[in-house]
Design a protein around this nucleic acid. Structure first.
Lengths: 218, 218
DNA sequence: CGGGCTCTTGAACTAGCTCAACCGGAGTGG
DNA sequence: CCACTCCGGTTGAGCTAGTTCAAGAGCCCG
């Protein structure tokens, strides 16, 4: 079971994603829900109708290929909203990376409120821009540039301090950047060797030369 | 000048994109503009404030890296809208692929109209979903899968017939799929060898085995 | 103290890139 | 009407970045 075989090996996260879900369905605006780490909030294909806001923790948005290859399109941090759909079904999966608190809002009631719907519009515009920028990274940048850009991104979103807490495993970073976890690990080692970063632990990165890091992100 | 050198060679399209632009600025809703082939509609960094609808032709949306590497995030066909921005500046470039007719609308007046703004919301939701799906292709699919998926996509968007007119050069397809033009050409040759398609001309592809094509797109 | 995970590192392999030559259709001019 | 040229596309040969496969090393938690 642990000996994964070839390219068509099933992504281990499929089986890990737990169906732990709060009993109370989110019906009125702003229902708060607690999720354990690596829990599924909703899955690709499920009925949509609610949008969510991260209160604490980290949420990953992903799509799976039938053979298990996975692409993470975004990590959502506290304050971020996700789960918007034009149709009645979700077209991607949302799972927690770490234990997280999430507020659910009814999509229809959000649209009824003009102030909220203006905010939604803005969120969507930002989301589209960010996804297009990420597409450029994945489609045109090399492994070192992608990892450097990822660290800068997480640094900025995490408050701008020099110490960046990566709450996700290498596997998730790899699936976000379109790489393998081994390559992510090697690129981190290279950035460390070039004195751009220091690895306080596997998940705690200190950015010791932002300028160099930015130059490497291309 | 024609001997391009190495990975850092400047993208030829930078210099080709012509600044041919209609004199009349789009100020009232629905101003129709005509553009020659490979003309710039707006560039990354320019002031935004208008959104556009393709009336005829094809428009490509792209982002450039300083060294000339380019990622095309979308091709827009007649009926599609583009140019939405949350901020005062555009964050990507829009150029015609072939001679095109485009209608410009003032963003602010579109937002004022609630019916139009509901349509905008829907367009954005669709756009986000499509971009995420494209990210999965670029991040996780191999060259053959990407090219097969591209042909299926263009086939469906082009009306569903068996003969697909690709109005864009190989270079554009490559920059859309995150490949090189040589690889695109080789994958088309492979699909042809496997009898999934027939190349009536370089730009005219006949899909002779959609099922096989879909299987190859993974 | 032991059993899983996660992460790192090494070695070999390969998909796709790079570099280079050539091909063919669409003007263009003699 | 043919020769020439230009440009987009194809094809080949070799190379390399990143993957794959494999073996260990930490590390957290019971």
């Amino acid at each position: 079971m642990l000996t994964q075989s070839a390219a068509s090996s099933v992504n281990p996260y499929i089986s890990f994603a737990r169906r732990q879900r709060p009993v109370q369905a989110p019906s009125r605006p702003g229902i708060v829900m607690n999720f354990a780490r690596s829990a599924e909030i909703f899955a690709d294909g499920e009925a949509s109708g609610h949008v969510y806001k991260v209160l604490s923790g980290v949420v990953r948005i992903s799509k799976l290929l039938p053979d298990g290859r996975r692409q993470i399109s975004a990590f959502h941090l506290p304050g971020d909203m996700f789960g918007f759909e034009a149709e009645a079904q979700h077209h991607f999966t949302a799972e927690t990376v770490v234990a997280s608190k999430v507020a659910a809002y009814k999509w229809s009631s959000l649209l009824a409120n003009s102030e909220a719907s203006a905010e939604v519009l803005n969120t969507l515009l930002q989301g589209l821009r960010i996804t297009q920028e990420h597409l450029l990274r994945v489609g045109r940048k090399n492994a070192l540039e992608r990892v450097a850009a990822f660290l800068i991104e997480m640094g900025e979103r995490g408050g701008g301090g020099d110490v960046v807490e990566l709450s996700m495993p290498r596997h998730d970073i790899a699936d976000y950047l379109g790489l393998t976890l081994e390559t992510v690990s090697r690129m981190l080692a290279e950035l460390k060797a070039k004195a751009a970063i220091r690895l306080k632990s596997a998940r705690t990165v200190e950015l010791i030369d932002r300028e160099l890091l930015e130059a490497m992100a291309a």
